[in-house]
Design a protein around this nucleic acid. Sequence first.
DNA 1: TGTCCATAATGAGTTTAACTCATATATACA
DNA 2: TGTATATATGAGTTAAACTCATTATGGACA
Lengths: 229, 229
Amino acid sequence: MDSAKTTKRAKLEQREKRIIVAARSVFLEHGFNKAKMSQIADIAELAEGTLYLYYKNKNAIVKAVVADHWREITDEAQKAFSDTDESFTQLQALADYHLTMMVKHWRVIELGYVLYYSHSDDAGENAGMDFKRTYAALFDRVIERGQDKGIFAKNVSLPFLRDLFYGTLEYAARTLILHNKPQDIKAIITQLMAVLRPHLSGKTNSQTDNDNAVLKRLERAVRKLERLR
Amino acid sequence: MDSAKTTKRAKLEQREKRIIVAARSVFLEHGFNKAKMSQIADIAELAEGTLYLYYKNKNAIVKAVVADHWREITDEAQKAFSDTDESFTQLQALADYHLTMMVKHWRVIELGYVLYYSHSDDAGENAGMDFKRTYAALFDRVIERGQDKGIFAKNVSLPFLRDLFYGTLEYAARTLILHNKPQDIKAIITQLMAVLRPHLSGKTNSQTDNDNAVLKRLERAVRKLERLR
DNA sequence: TGTCCATAATGAGTTTAACTCATATATACA
DNA sequence: TGTATATATGAGTTAAACTCATTATGGACA
């Protein structure tokens, strides 16, 4: 029966979700190594063995928790900059959202690192880690749309800019948390935008060199004038 | 006996070092969770129990391994940019060295993260993690010396620049490793310097516009003068 | 509605690996 | 050389991830 089948599937999915929710709370409280499968089972109101019917092992559970989180984040981020069409504003909104989320949900991000940085023997285990890639693609989309509209220069290196954007924000988030100063978010965003703006507007450093050449020429001319008197 | 005492101390330090060397090889091969204390003991040619006379637990051993590595790296980095007095060249050398090392010794950096991101119940355990701070201070020193010499603008935010510098390089390193393209190091450094140069030269973007106006006026005047002879 | 069967849940038992501690060995010093 | 102190050992303890033989559940069909 169709209805029976769907309710059955729904029930299983509900259990899966229940495990993830329980696992998240335990992982957030204790971190990966000190989180106990038994506690997760307790909170999910399941026997310990049952966990293993839904997830292969502890690693698979963290992975599911982290993936779930990034999925949510990705959806919300999209909403955060869909208010405007102005590319710089979109970029700023994304930066603001990203940094805010990094600071707010730092423990989950940490969990992601544990996952990322734990060597696994079987090759397939690191598959399905593309939730971060999907998230990072949001940045690419903003840049590409800006380029299409002629607002951003087309000769910028997207991979480098992406590294700069997310790298700076991530490092800044760590610094904020370490020093317990989450109020500096606005200042960081402003500064990041100040760095990105000229580059995205298409000022290359060869122009700087030109400027220098001009300055030198001026310098010579002025010195000549001064000698004249 | 003094010589006896020193040889005794030397012997203990040698054992300590032997443990670290053994531990590093095992951690690099297997990652934190799959590294076995028994294997470390085997390689160090000590009984498993002996390890615990030198280090409180497995965590303490990784910490020592990572600290040891950062100490070395810090020393070498200092040498890497001591060749020159030119501040931009120093900065570039530091960036180059940092990215190269991140790519080369990625597994050790990973270990650092495991440490960093593993919650610990007793507060004192996260002490002695300042090796990274010492390393990061190298950047500060280059910037500050450049400011003293009048090459770098003094109104830049050092903490932000530091986040941008290390954040970008770290993220870029991850990207390089993930995509297995360690040959792009030079390109990344060039681009990072292109971003930093105008900011360190003290061009805020509102100033850039001013500069352009001034330059144009000067240009006109000078051309006139040059025609005078 | 009652019987049967496939699917899911259980938790006691197994295994693995960090950590301890009673015992043994080496070293310093008289 | 004898004794005391410091260092080393590895069998034993403990904790926690993971397994599997057994039990429960809930839907299909008479």
